[in-house]
Computed example of a mutant assay.
Amino acid sequence: MSLYFLPDYPSRDFLAMAFNVDGEGNIPAIYSSLALLFSSLLLGAIAHVKNLDSDRYKQHWKILSFIFLYLSLDEAGQLHEKFIDPMRSLLKATGVLYFTWIVPIGFLVAIFLFSYSKFLFHLPVSTKKLFVAATALYIGGAMGMEMPGGYLASTTGAENVSYVIVTTIEESLEMLGIVVFIHALISYIKTYVGGVSWNIYIPGKHSQVTAHQNIGVPALSEAANTNLLR
């Protein structure tokens, strides 16, 4: 917004590039990638406990962890944008489908939502509500706002205030969706898994101890059952 509304000042273009939520390899992109990676780690922790318990939905948690790992890599490298040019040529797309990656990805999202419907309904009510809210925010931002953004890009171009506003809303919804999802996962771990403990062991060069001396982060809560991740 400073490029459009503020007079020139030192490092204006650099700061605009560094904090542009629609940019690549900058601060918002790194933040989003790390948030998605943290979600993948939390899902992996839950999947580990579910695997130990031979839970019916253990594979669902594992697959979710891998999906969010891919999303983290995608956010870092903008992998989905590689679909745009070939799909645009194939579909001769303009208007709301100008960013044509939403066509194949939208199809995959529909399959995913259908295949995970039973998994969703088995979750506790509070977790279920947060998962639904997070999904609506993230997909609503990533795909819902991408369509008006595509329309603006194909008709008026991307160098205007309207497009900046739409992309800012889009990326903000995605970020908010991940925040809600992380909250849902931590709440689920705290209440239904029994907390999680991450331990770090760094041996000294001439250490003589035989037992590991751990620097531990306390569990998120008192254990709700006998499963305590380490």
Rank of each mutant, 00 (worst) to 15 (best):
T94A: 04
V180G: 08
I165T: 02
I178S: 01
G177P: 00
H48Y: 09
T226L: 14
L152A: 10
S39M: 06
V125A: 15
H206A: 03
T135S: 13
G44P: 00
A29I: 13
L229P: 01
V132S: 10
W61Q: 04
P10C: 03
P10D: 04
A93D: 05
I111D: 06
V109A: 09
A136E: 12
G144H: 07
G44D: 03
S187Q: 03
I84F: 10
T135K: 00
P148I: 02
I105E: 13
L37A: 14
R12P: 11
K92Q: 07
G177Y: 04
S39F: 03
I182L: 06
I189N: 00
A133Q: 07
Y57R: 08
I139F: 08
S126C: 03
L228T: 15
N51T: 15
T156H: 11
V209T: 15
I46V: 12
L37W: 08
I30P: 01
D74F: 03
S154G: 13
A45M: 15
Q59P: 00
I67S: 08
I84E: 14
P203E: 12
G140T: 10
K128P: 10
G150V: 05
Q59Y: 14
H122Y: 09
P86V: 09
S72H: 01
S2R: 00
L34A: 05
F114Y: 11
G44T: 03
A16E: 14
E75T: 02
H206D: 14
G141C: 08
S115V: 09
A45S: 05
S221C: 09
E24C: 01
A158G: 10
A219Y: 00
V109H: 08
F83H: 05
H122F: 07
N214T: 02
V179R: 02
A110D: 02
R88S: 07
P10E: 06
V21F: 06
W101H: 04
L229W: 04
L185R: 03
P7A: 08
G149A: 10
D13M: 14
H122L: 03
A47K: 00
D53Y: 04
F107G: 09
R56V: 11
S11M: 07
A16N: 09
D53T: 11
Q59I: 12
I111V: 11
L176R: 01
D53L: 15
S65I: 05
V103I: 11
F38G: 13
K82E: 14
M1Y: 13
G44K: 03
L43M: 09
L228P: 02
Q78P: 02
S89Y: 09
I46S: 01
V166K: 07
S33T: 07
S172V: 07
I84K: 06
